[in-house]
Design a protein around this nucleic acid. Structure first.
Lengths: 224, 224
DNA sequence: CATGACAGACTGCTATCGCAGTTTGGCAGT
DNA sequence: ACTGCCAAACTGCGATAGCAGTCTGTCATG
């Protein structure tokens, strides 16, 4: 019997109905299908999704915790109103959390993580060259998610997933300039290098600046 | 009929059983009554709290989202293990979020908010003079919570409440030096002034430095 | 026509029950 | 003494039912 610590044998649990209901509702809110102010009835949504009200209720409570829904007892749950100011605030929160995540990732990264990061960065680079915006967005998202996974902090990951929902709402409303794309690649490269080097403070500062720029761009575009 | 915007007439809903179960369990984890690795059985806890498993389940899901519990499907929910590194990470997250909150508060603060802030700061000052540590901790907490309320961002408030649970775990493990106390008062004063002045960037930087110092202190103490 | 009240539908919240998969303790076989 | 196995207890998950409030539309009343 070897005493070396084995990697976790048990994989993640399969997503529950509550998880899937959450994702459905969240995406519908991001997409605008569920517009601000709309009523989110436990029973009504349950019928639409073909499940019982129980998983729906759980999903709604989670959305509530993320600020995307508001509940008044015995009256109803509604899609939260979202002003431009709020949206910008979410961007600032995202920036701060992404920065912290990068810093933590720089402290915890293992050789395996480093290999994964290099792979993600390569994917981003080739996606940038391809000019396919969808593909680039996906590659960028994967790079960020890889960093979150390396940080491996459950609270941080949850919070980032929440603010990313708002980030998606933002990117749906504004258009990204071409010049941003190449700058983004350079920044991503620098961030990954800092993480690989284990330079936590630099990784955090770079990531914060990188994501902070999105907020500034959004501030200009959204207030037009 | 006046057209001036009225303050919200409907107050907050009374706390539900799920809310109260959450608070009970969270406090028990902070206090150590529920130690890391312990099983959190829905039915068992429900019996202890005198409610049905349903509200307990909701509380557990929330704790899970905050990283204080982990669930393996059909096996059980357990109190999450918490290494010193993780605890320090939570401090960094807290620092970042508190900074953002202070910055947002500086942008949104109204005359009423300013009055409230001055009152809280006065309470902190007198509590500091009294030398009563319990009272000072409570006054400090109220000052911070006032800033959160002024920021008024649901996601931010939720996240801060979560990380504050970890902050309480930290403060239970370390002892605070006397010299920290007076420095803390000066910092709180500067932060409040920046918020009142509407200087968001300065408020954020000051708050971040203020809360970041706690992390550094904890890093030294916890690694002893 | 305006207004008030009241009945029914609807809401979120909690309790109870059943299902399918996991864990565990003790017994049978070596 | 040790190992393999199996059944009973236990687990989280989901469905269903009922409660106490809230909201709404209609109808009687001025």
């Amino acid at each position: 019997m070897t005493t070396t610590k084995l990697p976790p044998l048990l994989q993640d649990d399969p997503p529950t109905l509550a998880d899937r209901a959450y994702l459905s509702l969240r995406d519908a809110i991001i997409e605008g299908t569920l517009a601000p102010g709309m009523k989110l009835s436990e029973r009504g949504l349950a019928a639409m999704l073909g499940v019982s009200p129980q998983p729906v209720r759980e999903a709604l409570r989670r959305l509530e915790g993320e600020g995307m829904a508001e509940t008044r007892s015995r009256s109803g749950t509604y899609v939260a109103e979202l002003s431009v100011d709020r949206l910008l605030e979410m961007g600032r929160i995202r920036s701060a959390l992404e920065g912290v995540a990068a810093g933590i990732a720089a402290r915890r990264r293992t050789p395996v993580d480093i290999a994964a990061l290099r792979a993600r960065l390569t994917a981003v680079r080739s996606a940038t060259a391809s000019g396919d915006e969808r593909r680039l967005a996906a590659a960028n998202a994967q790079l960020h998610e890889t960093l979150h996974a390396i940080a491996g902090n459950a609270l941080l990951i949850r919070s980032l997933q929440a603010v990313n929902a708002y980030y998606h709402i933002s990117t749906r409303r504004i258009l990204v300039h071409k010049s941003e794309v190449s700058a983004s690649l350079a920044e991503h490269t620098a961030i990954v290098e800092a993480v690989i080097a284990g330079n936590a403070d630099e990784a955090e500062a770079l990531m914060r600046a990188h994501t902070g720029r999105s907020v500034d761009v959004a501030a200009v575009e959204l207030n037009r």
